[in-house]
Design a protein around this nucleic acid. Sequence first.
DNA 1: GTACAGATTGAG
DNA 2: TCAATCTGTACT
Length: 191
Amino acid sequence: MKNKRVQLNRSFYTRDTIIVAKELLGKYIVRKIGKKTLAGKIIETEAYIGPKDKASHAYNGKITPRNKVEYLAGGYIYIYLVYGMYWQLNVVTAGAGKPECALIRAMDLGRLTDGPGKVCRYLKLNKSFYGEDLTESKRIWLENPAPEQARCGASRGENGARSKIIATKRIGIDYAGHYWSRRKWRFVLKT
DNA sequence: GTACAGATTGAG
DNA sequence: TCAATCTGTACT
């Protein structure tokens, strides 16, 4: 049982976005590239809440070819390019028709993955992952920490028994105005 | 068709 | 502090 794989299923993602964003902390992203497997623990996320969040791409119910995947049920990948050079990995959350998502900002691999652009560079993600189903995909998915990993790592994994979750302001969205940029929807796992 | 801002990063 | 770099979006 010790290598039991727990690919997170749909019901994990189709809940309240704030809850999913918090519970993503401590989960492992597993990425298969040919015969290689990359994996890392999520230590930082941000929540973007549908039409009402001015910082969200779906603010005011906007639907574009870029963000339409946000309107699917939770568990799909929303990936897009910012500043012309950096991919941003988001996990769609909540139910179908609710354009909410959680941005994966960092993983526990030191400076290799300490920013959202770096996470995607490390995992070799690009537009071909747009709309990828994390509950079905054979090349990328999320897992609960294996007991072995939880023991080795600094964190106790989910449930926050040993780890603390810090909520802070989101990054880089000052254009959305004070109200939204002040929401503490960025979650960091402190170990 | 053109113009321009942006959920970042890394160098200075 | 600031440039790199280019897609999506909003305009004409």
